[in-house]
Design a protein around this nucleic acid. Sequence first.
DNA 1: CCCCTTATTGATAACGAATATCAATATAAT
DNA 2: ATTATATTGATATTCGTTATCAATAAGGGG
Lengths: 141, 141
Amino acid sequence: MLNEFDIFKDFLRHHHLRWTPQRKLILEVFIEQQGHIVIEDLHKKIHSQDPTIGIATLYRTMKLLVDAGLADMHTFNERTTYERLYKVRHHDHLICKVCGRTIEFEHPLIEKYQLEVCERHGFTLRSHRMELFGICNECRK
Amino acid sequence: MLNEFDIFKDFLRHHHLRWTPQRKLILEVFIEQQGHIVIEDLHKKIHSQDPTIGIATLYRTMKLLVDAGLADMHTFNERTTYERLYKVRHHDHLICKVCGRTIEFEHPLIEKYQLEVCERHGFTLRSHRMELFGICNECRK
DNA sequence: CCCCTTATTGATAACGAATATCAATATAAT
DNA sequence: ATTATATTGATATTCGTTATCAATAAGGGG
């Protein structure tokens, strides 16, 4: 089975783009993260391994990773975060409106009824996004 | 039953804030909108009724409406949108990735399971967004 | 292996949405 | 009416993200 590096390389080749040391390092750092990652944190970690990589390259590469289907971009509480997609089980999000904390969850019955809705409307379902906004346990205290 | 104006007035009084013609107009324009509204559109509509109202006042008032529980703020595709909360039946969206057509739907069971997920995680649910992406009947032909 | 075309890079300028500042004005309690 | 203070609009400022650009690197063809 292909790993993320091969997928990204294929994506680049297919779009006449190039495999560079900077892209390699950014992907390396990205895939070892868990959950949602803020650009700022990603930049810190990358900077500690190679201080010459500019922030613009990081933004550009993250956009490519999204296009390649390896990352997903969200905006939570005015902060852009990236999430690893590949080989990660699909899940939805609980998002605290106060502290911005996000909790991942999955619910098979919700997925089932989504399909039901699609069938009823003659839709072929490809993907979905579900975000529940509220206030978490900690912030309600 | 209280309407949105009374609720907002109460909120203002309670916080030692003032009921002004600008806030009245902004609320008027806001509650006659449907779905998610971008600040830009709101500003246009308000400007056409009163060109003297500044953009800062609009931002300030929208924040108050959120605090008062009358509006909900989301960031979707890097755009901040406001959604009317009070007395509006919630619905979700089917979005065709080919033609962009959107179909609104609601499914009580999905809502029920959302609540279940929230309870399980100690979350107080305030709002949610569910978008199903796919291909519609017309575009599949 | 070397060319040569073209993608990529880092630095930095530019952009734009949102917020802070501030003097003038409006509100509402007294 | 008076007075304290919230509000306003204009504008400056902030800050995350993007565009620009000259120098550099990648990688396909010979």
